[in-house]
Simulated scan of single mutants.
Amino acid sequence: MILGTLDWGHVATLLLMAFALGMDAFSLGIGIGFRGIRLLSILKVSFVIGLFHILMPLMGMLAGHYVGYLLGEVATLAGGGLLILLGGHMIYSSLRGESVHTLDFRNAWGLLLFALMVSVDSFSVGVSMGMFDSDVLLTVLLFGFFGGTMSVIGLWLGRRMGYWAGNYGEAIGGAILLMFGVQFIL
């Protein structure tokens, strides 16, 4: 799309949608940051989340209206269920001590699972965007930028607040993830 022919109302709508999707990454990042996370890991996790915020809506746009109608609710329920499991496990882990392992973001599977949980709603939004005459490149780039940037901010804030929370940081982070999981399901 050429800048001269850009519909600025459409761009404003895309910016608001990208911000809303990024808020999921932000809030979940706060919950994860409570556990404690290194600065380099914040950048790595946020990059992967940004990438997933590009790929998931792109796949959704390609899937089209019909598939979104069938899978949109299932994807949200699956994401909510995963967040409930992760949040409950984090609370359990904080109460039991170091003997219980939670999702490890330092390995590839843990990182991919977290990025998928954060970005699963982007698929449904992408399906909705696929029904409209939306600029695909602009849409996915905005979604990726906001997803990655908001997760950096959320992870960093969670990390800072986790220092204040001390040993209860993981339980607080788990409770936050648990609440968001329940909200996704309801």
Rank of each mutant, 00 (worst) to 15 (best):
G29M: 08
I30Y: 03
G31F: 01
G31C: 01
I32H: 09
I32T: 07
G33Q: 12
G33L: 13
F34I: 10
I37P: 11
I37W: 10
R38H: 15
L39E: 08
L40V: 11
L40Y: 11
L43N: 08
L43K: 09
L43E: 05
L43Y: 10
K44S: 05
S46V: 02
F47M: 10
F47D: 01
F47A: 06
G50A: 00
G50N: 01
L51D: 12
F52V: 04
H53Q: 15
I54H: 05
M56H: 04
M56R: 05
L58C: 02
L58Q: 02
L58R: 02
L58H: 01
M59I: 15
M59L: 10
G60A: 04
M61S: 07
A63L: 12
A63R: 01
H65K: 12
Y66P: 02
Y66A: 12
V67Q: 01
G68D: 01
Y69C: 13
Y69S: 13
L70G: 09
L70Y: 14
L71N: 13
L71A: 13
G72F: 06
E73N: 15
E73V: 15
V74G: 11
A75M: 11
T76V: 15
L77E: 10
L77Y: 15
A78F: 12
G81Q: 07
L82M: 05
L82N: 07
L83E: 02
I84F: 08
L85Y: 14
L86Q: 03
G88V: 09
H89P: 06
H89Y: 13
M90P: 00
M90Q: 08
Y92S: 05
S93F: 07
S93L: 11
S94F: 06
L95H: 08
L95P: 03
R96V: 10
S99K: 04
S99P: 10
S99C: 03
H101K: 13
T102Q: 06
F105L: 14
R106I: 07
R106S: 13
N107M: 00
N107L: 05
A108S: 11
A108K: 15
W109L: 14
W109Q: 07
L111T: 12
L111W: 12
L111H: 08
L111E: 01
L113M: 09
F114K: 11
F114R: 06
F114H: 05
A115W: 01
A115I: 11
A115T: 04
M117A: 14
M117K: 06
M117Q: 14
V118D: 06
V120W: 03
V120Q: 09
D121T: 07
D121N: 15
F123L: 15
V125M: 11
V125E: 10
V125L: 15
V125I: 12
G126Q: 02
S128R: 15
S128L: 13
M129Q: 07
M129I: 03
G130E: 03
G130I: 00
M131H: 10
M131K: 06
D133Q: 09
D133I: 07
S134R: 08
D135P: 04
L137N: 07
L137D: 03
T139K: 00
T139R: 00
V140N: 02
L141E: 04
L142P: 06
F145R: 12
F145H: 10
F146D: 05
G148H: 04
G148Y: 09
T149Y: 11
M150C: 14
M150F: 12
M150G: 12
M150Y: 11
M150P: 06
S151P: 11
V152W: 15
I153P: 10
I153F: 14
I153Y: 15
